[in-house]
Amino acid sequence: MDSRRLLIIDDEDDIREVVKLALETTAGWTVVTAASAVEGLRSAEAAPLDAILLDVSMPEVDGPSVFEKLCRNPLTRRVPVLFLTAKVQANDRRRLAALGAAGVIPKPFDPMRLAAEIAEALGWELEEGC
């Protein structure tokens, strides 16, 4: 199994659960979850990560703000970030892309292909059979 370790920051419980299950079962990655920006930033510092999946629309501190904080933090700034967003209108996507994230994954997504999409965006090789 792949030993990659990812963090998902999303305020929707069900979505975190689905994403975690999807990446664990399809790619064998370790997935850490956070339900808010504050929790997510703490988790990102706590242990090394290969990537962060970041929800855009969150209460209190939204995704882009979290991304900015991650980029400024020396401990986290090298970790690639992919936005997960239900805001799929063209201008929303342009705005996000302009921030410099590694990718944008629109909601809803195909759980069976999510790992492949992430790997593709980050240039990872997925192990055969996964």
């Binding site: 979505i15 997504f109 759980p111 069976m112």
Partner: peptide
């Protein structure tokens, strides 16, 4: 829908 799609997809 994301949750539904994800759950059903899995």
């Amino acid at each position: 829908l994301t949750s539904i799609r994800g759950a059903l997809g899995l």
